[in-house]
Design a protein around this nucleic acid. Structure first.
Length: 452
RNA sequence: CGGAGUGUAGCUCAGACUGGUAGAGCACUGCUUUCGGGAGGCAGGGGCCGGAGGUUCAAAUCCUCUCACUCCGACCA
């Protein structure tokens, strides 16, 4: 007899118990495909305009994306902290942004009539932490990040989690003694971002962005290509074909050549698009598509450190004002963005790295002794091998079960039905290609669980 | 914040113009027939028609106010 904790090892993985309220019909409020599919797949529920609850299926994906982001930040020596969502207004008065920010900032007054705000970003707070504790150039450089919910009271939230008011964001901050140091930090992040998106199965292309009053070229937006993207983008085809995961990277070495490789080719959003330059690219290398912004990095020098007096003692003993940069990734937005980039008529197609489960196991005829035996054996093997599987053991007709499985887009399906079981086979289906193969259960299991 | 809409069953929507006992399909419950791609039959349950005022013998329906949500625009991770 296995106890409750054993049965729930790895979480609930049986459809008969899993809370996943799928919908056949499309809710009226959803316009874009990722929003429609997230609602239909039971991933999220809207709480109010631009604010969502994450249901188990959606939450699993959110966590996977968050974890990839975390691992790639850790890999470049960026250290994780967690700052609060609620911040004191005084901090923002120091930088001058409390007055500048406008109605997008959600302002709150506590019981002591103290002015607070729900943070839309954390430059002031991290600068305050840093100036309190870091006093010498010897402690530099430093990279810190956190992954936290933010709030921006957008006038017009839309597109589901792609443009919510509340959103989960990774924001990192770099602290250096001078511009050269800041640029090294910038390059580390630049390269880290390329790997991060590549691991999620996305083609992300860095595009020059407006760097504001600081000037220079140290500001890039990371844009993924998706037909339903919010803005037009133009770039050189080679950028789409670079494969970052195959590039060996020494994060402590000179990253400039890698950055140069990406920035030397033309890439621009419609705001910065220069048709004349674009026309000089050979016609077959021109890419003109739609894109979604999923990250933004920039160097901003002493914009916050100067007014907030974040200084350290330099080599000569004189105070040096810190050079800073900040680096954002829209974690919750990425859930929608991945779907925009990867879906078909039937539903979502998750890349394996972010899929809520790796395998969807469908028992087409629950109650049939032979089907039940084969399916539950496969289920047990998956659990034992720690392969994430969603076992559809609901007593329902094949149609809805198969349709649900396509809708939620798990990379692999194993379909156990009476017809196949009679001749000793099950069907495995690749969600992305639609390719179906009939194999003996054991072979099917081996094929899907073999480590690549 | 400008402009335009919509709020009726869990979901998609009719009913409103022309006031008179609340509707359909899907979903849900039970039985049944089906059984490899959202099936069929029978029987059920489910609504203060977003909220508050008003007009009227009578309001989902007409009027006023209010709240919420959506779309277009400007803005934006």
């Amino acid at each position: 007899m296995r106890g409750p904790s054993a049965r729930h090892q790895g979480g609930v993985m049986r459809s008969s118990q899993f809370f996943m309220p799928t919908m056949k019909e499309t809710p009226a409020e959803a316009q874009i495909v990722s929003h429609r599919l997230m609602l239909r797949a039971g991933m999220i529920k809207q709480a109010s305009a631009g604010i969502y609850s994450w249901l188990p299926l959606g939450f699993k994906v959110l966590k996977k994306i968050e974890q990839i982001v975390r691992e790639e930040q850790d890999a470049i020596g960026c250290q994780e902290v967690l700052m609060p969502t609620i911040q004191p207004a005084d901090l923002w008065r120091e930088s001058g942004r409390y007055e500048d920010y406008g109605k997008e900032m959600l302002r709150i007054t506590d019981r002591h009539e103290r002015e607070m705000l729900y943070g839309p970003t954390n430059e002031e707070m991290i600068t305050d932490i840093f100036r309190t504790h870091v006093k010498s150039y010897r402690e530099l450089p430093k990279l810190l990040y956190h992954i936290q919910w933010k709030f921006r009271d957008e006038v017009r939230p839309r597109f589901g989690v792609m443009r919510g008011r509340e959103f989960l964001m990774k924001d990192a901050y770099s602290f250096d003694l001078d511009f050269a140091g800041a640029k090294r930090a910038y390059n580390k992040m630049f390269v880290s971002y390329l790997r991060t998106y590549a691991r999620m199965g996305l083609k992300a292309i860095p595009m020059a962005a407006d760097s504001g009053p600081i000037g220079g070229d140290l500001s890039h937006e990371f844009i993924i290509l998706a037909k339903t993207g919010e803005s037009a983008v133009y770039c050189h085809r080679d950028l789409v074909e670079f494969d970052m995961l195959k590039t060996e990277i020494d994060h402590e070495g000179d990253l400039q050549p890698i950055v140069d490789r990406w920035t030397s080719l033309y890439a621009a959003t419609d705001e910065k698009h220069d048709a004349a330059t674009f026309e000089k690219i050979p016609a077959d290398k021109r890419v003109n598509e739609r894109g979604i912004e999923v990250g933004h990095i920039f160097y901003f020098g002493t914009k916050y450190s100067a007014p907030m007096k974040a200084q350290v003692g330099g080599q000569t003993g004189d105070p040096v004002t810190l050079h800073m940069g900040s680096y954002g990734i829209g974690v919750s937005r990425l859930v929608g963005a991945v779907i925009e980039a990867s879906h078909d008529e039937a539903g979502i197609i998750w890349p394996e790295s972010v899929a809520p489960f790796r395998i969807g196991l469908v028992n087409l005829k629950v109650g049939d002794a032979a089907c039940d035996a084969v399916a539950s054996d496969l289920y047990a093997r998956c659990l034992a091998a720690k392969v994430e599987v969603l076992y559809d053991d609901r007593d329902d007709r094949p149609g809805p079960k198969l349709a649900d499985m396509d809708l939620i887009g798990l990379p692999w399906q194993i379909v156990v039905g009476p017809r196949g079981v009679k001749s000793g086979v099950v069907e495995i289906k690749n969600r992305k290609t639609g390719e179906k193969v009939e194999l003996a259960p054991e072979q099917a299991f081996n094929k899907l669980t073999a480590r690549a």
